[in-house]
Design a protein around this nucleic acid. Structure first.
Lengths: 217, 217
DNA sequence: AACACTTTTGTACTATAGGAAAAGTTTTCT
DNA sequence: AGAAAACTTTTCCTATAGTACAAAAGTGTT
């Protein structure tokens, strides 16, 4: 059997197997106990922990539930990616086109900084867009945008169209289907900041809030 | 072949397949394009999208990379846990002053939406500021800002001053001491988006934001 | 209608999952 | 201590499920 350590199973020194084992050991559970909790066989668990197999999505979900961890956390292997070197980055006005669709041209901002959690970008909403309802998308996370030039209409599945002029802004749950339409026959530029879904980890929110409030600005 | 819709693949109405397809469609990609990007065969992708198979962990990782989404996000199927009542809000150009200091005037944007995780605001950096190094602050989280008018200099503890003109932007780890200075004797307006510390758990992002922004920033 | 393109459907192959036995480890008892 | 016992983990084998390749079906365009 192949050693999956050299396969894409490896992200940052940690493998899925080592993580599963660590989680199990943290609870002082045996393979049998996890087998009971997950419905997976002991042998399958053993192979997973030794990175001899690559479990299916369905089994990853059973694993996460049995190990009492969110699936999201389970599969996140590179948790400590902290690099001290890059803590700030700057983007200039004319930046590279990040992506282009019939509807939008997108310019990534501050893309060099990889550890950041927000994703800022400039979007040019093209005027010659046929039907508003065509491009409806929904994706995880939240987004905020601010109209730099022109005017747009925000269409969503739950709210009526809202017209935004230059200087206006909107914040929306992007799991709602939504799309933007440039108004008045002219392209519109918006500054958009997207934020991925919230981490589900078993974090101590109280102490974190306290730590924040005790900071001396 | 079994219909995995009845299997644990289903969490909240959404299946892995529907999500993969939505992600692909959001980019207007074909199966062939994703196949190229991921290394997976077209047929495998088709079956995954139709929930006919449960991809292995190794392939989930290739999928995430090809779809340009974190693995964590890819496997998080219950994205729409938000309340339907408030999932969007809009702010108009002339908004209320949120807070005023000798150095900044701050205008909160989209403040009505309480559950949001990012905190967008407009800051007017006042020109008549005595010494750059006086107002240095550091607080938790990350911040992104975009220069709307005028020019500013960003001073931080680790980097030399960086001058930003209108249209420029910066992203920084706000635990680094930092401050902004308006240049050329004129006030500068920036759009700022602040994001609290990483794993916030069930914390109320809005109130935390308020606490932090009310400090001596 | 012909064409190019995209997606789905078979078939062969390869990898994962489950059950049981073997190997390894710790505990218990004399 | 030593050995047996109980428990934990790994390995072997077979069945099942996922993947790749190729062909067929579906879709939209000229």
């Amino acid at each position: 059997m192949d050693d999956l350590r050299t396969e894409p199973g490896l992200i940052n020194g940690q493998t899925l197997g080592t993580k599963v084992r660590a989680l199990r050991k943290a609870h002082s559970w045996t393979l049998a106990a996890v087998s009971e909790a997950t419905g997976l066989s002991i042998s399958a668990l053993s192979k997973i922990e030794n990175d001899q197999v690559s479990p299916t999505f369905a089994n990853l979900m059973r694993l996460a539930e049995g190990l009492q961890i969110s699936l999201s956390d389970l599969v996140t292997l590179n948790e400590d990616e902290g690099s001290v070197s890059a803590r700030m980055t700057v983007s200039r006005k004319s930046d590279i086109v990040f992506r282009s669709t019939p509807k939008y041209d997108m310019y990534a901002l501050c893309a060099e900084l990889r550890r950041k959690r927000m994703t800022p970008l400039i979007e040019r909403v093209k005027a010659d867009e046929p039907s508003p309802l065509d491009g409806m998308v929904s994706h995880s996370g939240e987004e905020f945008f601010y109209v730099l030039n022109g005017a747009i209409e925000v269409h969503t599945e739950h709210y009526g169209p809202v017209r935004l002029e230059k200087g206006d802004s909107a914040y929306l749950d992007s799991t709602m289907a939504h799309t933007l339409v440039a108004m008045d026959g002219k392209d519109a530029d918006i500054l958009m900041v997207w934020l991925g879904p919230a981490p589900v980890g078993q974090e101590d929110g109280a102490s974190m809030a306290e730590a924040i409030l005790n900071q001396d600005c």
